[in-house]
Design a protein around this nucleic acid. Structure first.
Lengths: 216, 216
DNA sequence: CATCTCAGGCTAATGTCATTAGCTTTTCAG
DNA sequence: CTGAAAAGCTAATGACATTAGCCTGAGATG
C-alpha cells in the first residue's frame, strides 16, 4: 500500500490523456483509476464526482487551447493571423480530440481559472478581428461565426461526417479563406447596412504557419 | 398483461421525444421503457441495444431534418434560399434539440433509408450553392463550410457557449449573411485563385422566410 | 370450436459504473 | 516520538444495459 502520489491535478491530467484516447464522452472514473493504479473509490479523495472531473478536464483543455492559439497569433495580423489561429485550433483538435471535445463545456461560474482561459481564447479572436477593423457588436457576431464554423468543422470531421472523397485539409483551407473574404466585407454584409461601403477585395496569398510540432 | 402495442418504430419515436426532453446523450433505455409503459427488458423485443436505438433516432431525425430543409428551400434561390434553409436548420435544432444532436451521428453503412436522408439534406445544400454558381469540388468545400458553421452555431448555442449579451438571433443572421458574401466570392477566395475575378458585391436585403410554425 | 404457435411482456441474474460509508496506514509537523 | 490529517482500501447501494428463460394471449389452422 505505497501511496500512489495522486493529486487533483494528476487525476485531471490522466483523465485528459484518457479522454484523448477513448473520447470525452466515454471518460470513466473506473478507467482513470486503473490508469492511475488505484481503486476507483480512491479517486474521490481528489475529485468530487465524475462531473467535476469532466469540468476539470474542460478547464485544463481550455487553458491549453488558449496557449496554442495565443502563441500561434503572436506577431501576426490580418489574413496571416486568421490562418495561423485557425490552423492552431484545428491542430489542437486533431492532436487532442478528447480535450478538444471538453472545451465546448461552459465554464463553471465559480472557476475563475477556467473563465480566464475562455477569455484568453476570445481575446485572440478579437485581436484577429481588429485586424479587419471589426469591433464592438460586430466583433461579437464575427467571433461567434468563426468559432461556430471552426468548431463545427472539427466536430463533423471527428464524427466522420465528411463522407465525400474531397480532401479535408483543402476544405478547411477554403473555409478559412471564406472567412477572410467575409471579414473584409463584414459591415457590408449587415442585413440593413448602415454604411454601404463596398471595400476592395484582392485575393491574398498567405505564408505557411503553425509549424510548431506541439500543435500538430 | 395487456399488450402495450409497441413496435420498433414506436420505440424509436418515443426515444426521439425523450431525447428532445433530456438530451440525446442522456437517452436511456430505462426511461424509454417507463415512457412506453413496459419494463426495460421488454424493449429488447423491438430494438437490439441502446446503440441501435441511438442509431434509429439518428435515422429518424435525419429524415425529419431533410424534410424541413427541403420544404424550406422549395421555390427559392440564391440568398433567399440560403436564408430559408439556414432558418429551417436552426428552427429544427431549436425545436428538437435531442433529435438534432442525433443527426451528427454518421449513418450505419447498412441503413439505406438513413443514407438516403443524409443525401437529401446534401442535395438541398448543393442546390442552394448552384444558385451561386458553385459546383464540383468547390461545392463540396462550400457544403462542408456551411454545414460546419450552422452545426457549430447550433451546438455552441445549445451548450450555452455564447456568454456575451449580444442577441443570438442577430449573430446567426450575420453568420448567414457572411456566407452569402463568401459564396459570391467563392472562386476568388481560392488559396491560388485560377480565376482572379473580383465580382461586384451589392448588399442584398432579404425577405422574411421560414414562417412555417412546424419548424419553430 | 379446439389448438398450436409465437410474438410480446415479464422476472431473475450478471456485470459495469458512480457514489457513499467507514476502516487502516502512511506521512509529516511539532 | 506521537498524533492527526491525508490517501488508500473494502464493502454496500443503486442506476443501467444486457441475457436467459418463462408465460400468455391472439391470431392462424384444422
Amino acid at each position: 500500500m505505497p501511496r500512489a502520489g495522486l493529486s487533483r491535478q494528476r487525476v485531471i491530467s490522466e483523465a485528459a490523456a484518457l479522454a484523448d484516447d477513448v473520447g470525452f464522452d466515454k471518460l470513466t472514473l473506473a478507467a482513470v483509476a486503473e490508469r492511475a493504479g488505484v481503486r476507483l473509490p480512491s479517486l474521490y479523495k481528489h475529485i468530487e464526482s465524475l462531473d467535476a472531473l469532466r469540468q476539470g478536464v474542460a478547464a485544463l483543455a481550455t487553458r491549453e487551447l488558449a496557449e496554442a492559439v495565443t502563441s500561434a497569433a503572436v506577431g501576426r495580423a490580418g489574413a496571416d493571423a486568421l490562418h495561423a489561429v485557425a490552423d492552431a485550433y484545428r491542430g489542437f483538435g486533431q492532436s487532442h480530440p478528447g480535450r478538444y471535445a471538453a472545451t465546448i463545456r461552459a465554464a463553471d461560474p465559480d472557476d475563475a481559472e477556467h473563465h480566464k482561459a475562455t477569455e484568453a481564447v476570445l481575446r485572440v479572436v478579437f485581436a484577429v478581428l481588429a485586424g479587419y477593423d471589426i469591433t464592438g457588436d460586430d466583433a461579437v457576431d464575427a467571433t461567434r461565426a468563426l468559432r461556430a464554423a471552426l468548431h463545427g468543422f472539427l466536430t463533423l470531421e471527428a464524427a466522420g461526417g465528411f463522407g465525400m472523397p474531397r480532401d479535408v485539409d483543402r476544405s478547411y483551407e477554403q473555409l478559412v479563406a471564406a472567412f477572410d473574404v467575409a471579414f473584409r466585407h463584414w459591415r457590408a454584409a449587415q442585413p440593413v447596412p448602415p454604411t454601404p461601403t463596398v471595400p476592395r477585395m484582392p485575393p491574398v496569398p498567405r505564408r505557411g504557419v503553425s509549424k510548431d510540432p506541439s500543435l500538430r
